[in-house]
Write a protein that binds this DNA or RNA. Structure first.
Lengths: 235, 235
DNA sequence: CGGCCTCTTGATGTATGTCAAAGGGTGTGG
DNA sequence: CCACACCCTTTGACATACATCAAGAGGCCG
């Protein structure tokens, strides 16, 4: 029953955290050089192709992950088999926090685009967190961020008309980004994020394209008309 | 603009944590007797009437709260003024965790029934958490619990038909309870929890009553037909 | 080239939103 | 103590956004 994901094929080497390009913004940003000497367990990197699962709901969670590049969806299922995407995680985000509590993973984590992640043994993070206040604080901040995201998905992406939801999702994708260009998901995934059907997602996106709220500059790269989308999202 | 709640009238005394009836299940369950001697700041108790706010979104969060009895809703607002209830908290639940990070509160917290809470200065909890691994672990567990709840509200209460959502909400209210009787909320609140209108909530509850899925034993106390509600919730 | 998958679009049905009004309960002031 | 106002629930009539079912178009790969 409990199918487990094999990451063997996705392995792409051991990480060098001390010289990581993302070090100032990731989980370990608060660590000192000396702390890294206490890390004896290997921290591995993995590369995932679109659609590849990182872990599945119910798997024994012995690892946390940091996203280096790319994007993953966190998916939950209802008893009737329908699925709902409850969050997406992107560069510098952490996933698998529940492993710190010996929990099983709560979601399927599946790559949406080509994605690279670093993998940390939960035991290691637990031990470092016990003695290192900065990491401890960083962990709480990560948990709170996930919670804020979860709440926002409920209020922004599961409330209002389909057009409002799509508009809010699009705006969310480019928020805090330097460019207002972004790639889109499959219509099926968009539907699962917004609680609407694939067809409704497709119709809405198609309509936005016709109204030039959305312009495809390169294949699957869309430039957004932010002011008008924002107007749409709010009323 | 930022209206702050005055709890002056709700004050009902200082708590005695060491002899608290809930001590084995609350945030401080991991503390030893000796730890309590380090608590010099007062831990106050408050009693809230239905509809009374405990704090408002945007307030400077300097306190965490534990619910002793009763129930509160956590409410978020959209720019257009519509509101969404993102979670409810009940006996032994913690709210205001964001105050540990110097964040402002993310929601309005409003009593649904008569409610008693204990209030802890965030500074106190931060300090105890730094030196006490048990409390540290308990905090992480609380955060994870809130996150799991948030995800469940999205998948269970914001997905499917109105009847499914109402059924799932009702089942949730009696889960892990000794009795399958429970009080109900106003139809407006139910709507805000499920992402449907007040009228739809009302119609659905009225229909459930007619079908005896819901029997009012005492004013606003309902006995649930759990097996049939469960059947409804799933398909 | 054929098969498969996703996106799009159309036709139709229906659940839910919207607007409106009536009934019942509760509290307040005369 | 009654009368009135107010609020919440319920119900009805109607409108509509979205789901559902179905089919065609375009892209990708074996």
């Amino acid at each position: 029953m409990t199918k487990t994901v094999s990451l063997r094929e996705a392995w792409s080497g051991e990480a060098n955290c001390l010289h990581c390009a993302l070090r100032t913004s990731v989980l370990f940003s608060g660590l000192q050089e000396a702390d890294f000497e206490h890390i004896h367990e290997p921290i591995d990197q993995f590369a995932l192709k679109p659609g590849a699962p990182l872990y599945l709901a119910g798997d024994t969670g012995e690892y946390l992950f940091t996203v280096r590049t790319g994007m993953l969806k966190l998916v939950q299922y209802l008893p009737d088999g329908s699925q709902r995407i409850v969050r997406i995680v992107r560069s510098t985000d952490v996933l698998g926090l529940e492993s710190l509590l010996d929990d099983r993973y709560q979601h399927d984590a599946v790559a949406l685009h080509a994605t690279e992640v670093c993998r940390f043994p939960a035991r290691l993070v637990r031990e470092l967190g016990r003695v290192n206040p900065a990491l401890h604080h960083e962990l709480m901040a990560r948990w709170q961020r996930a919670l804020t995201e979860a709440d926002a998905w409920l209020t922004e992406l599961s409330t209002g008309s389909a057009r409002q939801r799509v508009a809010r999702l699009l705006l969310r994708l480019v928020r805090d980004r330097e460019t207002s260009e972004c790639p889109l998901f499959s219509r099926e995934d968009m539907g699962a994020m917004l609680g609407v059907t694939t067809e409704t997602a497709s119709r809405t996106i198609a309509e936005f394209k016709r109204q030039s709220l959305l312009v495809e500059t390169t294949p699957n790269l869309f430039l957004l008309d932010i002011p008008n989308l924002r107007r749409l999202a709010e009323d």
